[in-house]
C-alpha cells in the first residue's frame, strides 16, 4: 500500500460505526494485556528488585510515579493532535477522543502529583515544594480542569468541539511557556529524567526493566480507557442525534 492509501485506510476509522465495530474487537486484548503488564511490572518492581542504596524502598514508587507522569503529558499531546485533526478534517471521532482522554490525563496528573508527594516526603522532607516540575504539573492539572469544564459547559456538541480544540492549541502554547517561566522562576529539587538515552543519567538496569513493563502497562491501559470512553461518547452523541431527529420529525 502506498502512504496515501494507508492514510485513507486510517481515516476510515473516523467513521463512528467502523470505530465502534473495530474497538469492540480489540478492546478485550487491550484490557487483558494492560492488566498483565501492570501486574507483572508492579509485582516485579515491588518484590523482586533490591532497595536503592540511598533511597531505600521508597524508590519503588517510581513504578507508579514515572508512568503516570509520562501519560499526564502524553495525554495532553494526544488531545492536541486529535484537536488539530478535528479542526482540519472535521472527524467527530477525533474530537470525541480528545474529550475522552481529558479526564484520564487529569487523573494521571493527580496520581503523579500524589505519588510524587508520597515519595518527596521521606526524600526531601516535605510533601510539596515549588519545584519547577511539580509546579508545571500543577499548572497542567489546571489546564485539564479548564478544558474539561469548557466541554461540560457548552451545549452544542460541534461548538464545544471547536472551542475546546482552540483552547487545547492555545493552552499547549501557554503550557510550554509556563514550563519555561517556572524553570526560570525557581531552580528545583527534582532529580533528572528517570529515563534517558544517556546511560550515565538514567536509573540502574535492575530498576529499568520492570519500569519499562510498568510503563507499557500504563500505556495499554490508557489506550483501552480512551477507546472505551470514546465509544461511550459516540453512543451518547448518537442518542442525542436520534432525539434531535425525532424532534425535527415531530
Amino acid at each position: 500500500m502506498s502512504l496515501s492509501q494507508k492514510m485513507n485506510a486510517l481515516w476510515a476509522y473516523a467513521n463512528p460505526k467502523k470505530f465502534l465495530a473495530t474497538t469492540e474487537r480489540v478492546l478485550p486484548f487491550f484490557w487483558a494485556s494492560a492488566a498483565v503488564a501492570i501486574v507483572v511490572g508492579l509485582a516485579w518492581g515491588f518484590f523482586f528488585t533490591p532497595d536503592d542504596y540511598r533511597q531505600g524502598s521508597t524508590v519503588k514508587i517510581i513504578y507508579l510515579h514515572v508512568p503516570s507522569a509520562m501519560l499526564a503529558i502524553n495525554a495532553w499531546l494526544m488531545m492536541l493532535v486529535t484537536s488539530l485533526v478535528w479542526l482540519v478534517r472535521r472527524h467527530h471521532v477525533s474530537a470525541l477522543a480528545a474529550r475522552a482522554a481529558a479526564p484520564i490525563g487529569a487523573t494521571m496528573t493527580v496520581i503523579a502529583l500524589l505519588t510524587g508527594a508520597i515519595w518527596g516526603q521521606p526524600m526531601w522532607g516535605t510533601w510539596w515544594a515549588w519545584d519547577p516540575r511539580l509546579t508545571s504539573f500543577l499548572i497542567l492539572f489546571l489546564f485539564y480542569l479548564g478544558y474539561i469544564a469548557l466541554w461540560e459547559a457548552i451545549e452544542d456538541p460541534e461548538t464545544a468541539a471547536d472551542l475546546t480544540s482552540v483552547l487545547c492549541i492555545v493552552g499547549s502554547v501557554f503550557a510550554v511557556l509556563s514550563r519555561y517561566a517556572v524553570n526560570f522562576w525557581n531552580q528545583g529539587l527534582h532529580q533528572g529524567a528517570s529515563l534517558s538515552l544517556d546511560k550515565e543519567e538514567h536509573v540502574a538496569d535492575v530498576f529499568y526493566y520492570p519500569l519499562l513493563v510498568s510503563i507499557a502497562g500504563f500505556i495499554l491501559l490508557f489506550i483501552a480507557l480512551v477507546l472505551y470512553r470514546t465509544g461511550t461518547e459516540i453512543r451518547a452523541r448518537r442518542i442525542r442525534a436520534l432525539m434531535a431527529r425525532e424532534r425535527v420529525a415531530a
Binding site: 489546571l142 459547559a153 482552540v166
Partner: peptide, 30 residues
Amino acid sequence: ALTVGLKRGGLLLSLLVLPLYVPTLIFGAE
C-alpha cells in the same frame, strides 16, 4: 470570547484564563 455564549460563564472564564496568566505573572512579578 470562549465563554461569551454561556449563561454563567464568569466562573468558567476565571478557570480558563488564570492558567494562561501564569507566564505573564511570573515574569512580571519577577
